[in-house]
Nucleic acid binder design. Structure first.
Lengths: 239, 239
DNA sequence: ATATATGTTTTGGTATGATCAGTTTAAAGA
DNA sequence: TCTTTAAACTGATCATACCAAAACATATAT
């Protein structure tokens, strides 16, 4: 019966336990978005812990975007934004960016995006068309020297195609990928002459296919667009 | 000269300022991975702040995976794991899950997974095969009444196919989706007789195609598997 | 009666100092 | 030299006090 002297203390720190408890409550919707948490002093009594421990748990939760803390007002369960998750992803790539990922990103886009264009052609609403059209004219009007803005507009076009699919899973799936693209922009896009004209033409073709609900054409047009990206990258590699 | 009475206090809280300072140092590689930070007491002196404020900043950083805190030892800049970013995405998906999304999740899988199977057939390493094979035998051995474990094993098989694609972007993209599947399991899978046999056969076909590097066959087999999922869900809806 | 100004209360933010609990390190002993 | 023991160092928790922003209630002026 060695269990008499089994461990008492746990590996977890007290504030971590508190963190998990509150996190679980949020995950299980026992605490809904927007709900106001009890004040710090009240929570201390409820959990029977000091303010220090409690506050450190709350700091963690707010750092992760689960709650929002407003001085003088209170603490609220916040709607976790996709941005929080993407920030985390971007931080990861900031710290360990590997240019080997570029071809892999392109590969994923080449495989996924044509199918997304097909969905968009099938499901798009009229207001999606407006956004796409605006992206195209923005690109036309954009200062040719401002390659960063150009790249941003192009990325937005692709994101708007994803939105036109009317499938929220598609959107949140692709958003992290699009957030990685700006990292590649100067590496690739800026180095090629006449690329902008090609892109505008391609975008217009994709737009028209989606507008006409021609799924196959949208698919093919997107294949062409991404293949071009791949080509440019391959050329870039030779330098 | 209204600037006489310009703002003094800043919007940012003190601990947030500390957090940013340290974060910037890490981002700019002034603090390298594995580096040991000065002790709490030392940092307090350096920043000229109280331990409270400092500690809350550190709690935030550790919650985000930037540093690791070891009691009794010290604080270290940690190698930000891709897992941290994925966890964050998982949490987001988890919180925004809604059973209305099920058909849209299936749609995404139907479009993406066959292509992923194709990549897997092209890029898989031998060790990927071992994992897939183990998933299949696990499913065979699984207690038929334990539908939860069955569903978990099935999901792992699909995740391992994604891993066999050897494209980390694919994994980042799909893992959050797979993490949602367990929620759908009892909703769908458990209600159909003879489903397990079908699934085992389908998985075996997919496995063989990947093993033989037969990309088209892998693609087709996966299409069949996901279509079956869709069928079952449609049947389920009628009830 | 409404609107503005004022003051009080509540809430989170910061500062100290003391103490607890693991780790590490160095000294003491075999 | 190796093991054991003790001290020193590190983060974790607690209790208290006080600061600052926001929300609330009250009183005052219009």
């Amino acid at each position: 019966m060695d269990e008499i002297f089994g461990k008492i203390g746990s590996a977890q720190t007290l504030s971590q336990k508190i963190e998990r408890r509150i996190e679980e409550a949020i995950r299980q919707k026992k605490l809904l978005v927007g709900a106001k948490l009890p004040s710090e002093r009240e929570l201390c009594e409820m959990f029977a812990v000091s303010r220090t421990a409690l506050r450190e748990a709350l700091r963690r939760l707010s750092a992760r975007g689960l709650i929002e803390i407003k001085k003088g007002s209170g603490m609220y369960v916040s709607e976790l934004k996709i941005k929080d998750a993407i920030d985390s992803l971007n931080l990861y790539y900031d710290l360990s960016f590997d240019s080997n990922l570029i071809p892999q990103i392109i590969e994923v886009r080449r495989v996924f995006e044509p199918e997304i264009a097909r969905m968009a052609a099938n499901n798009r609403r009229d207001k999606d068309l407006d956004l796409l059209l605006k992206n195209i004219s923005d690109l036309e009007d954009c200062d040719p020297d401002n390659t960063q803005m150009e790249a941003d507009i192009i990325n937005k076009f692709h994101l708007n195609v994803a939105k036109a699919s009317c499938n929220p899973i598609v959107i949140i799936t692709m958003e992290p990928i699009y957030s990685l693209l700006p990292r590649m922009r100067n590496l690739i896009y800026a180095n090629v002459d006449g690329e902008k004209d090609f892109t505008i033409k391609a975008h217009r073709t994709i737009y028209e296919a989606i507008r006409d609900k021609d799924a196959d054409k949208a698919f093919e047009a997107m294949v062409g667009q991404i293949n071009r990206t791949l080509e440019i990258y391959t050329q870039y590699l030779k330098k």
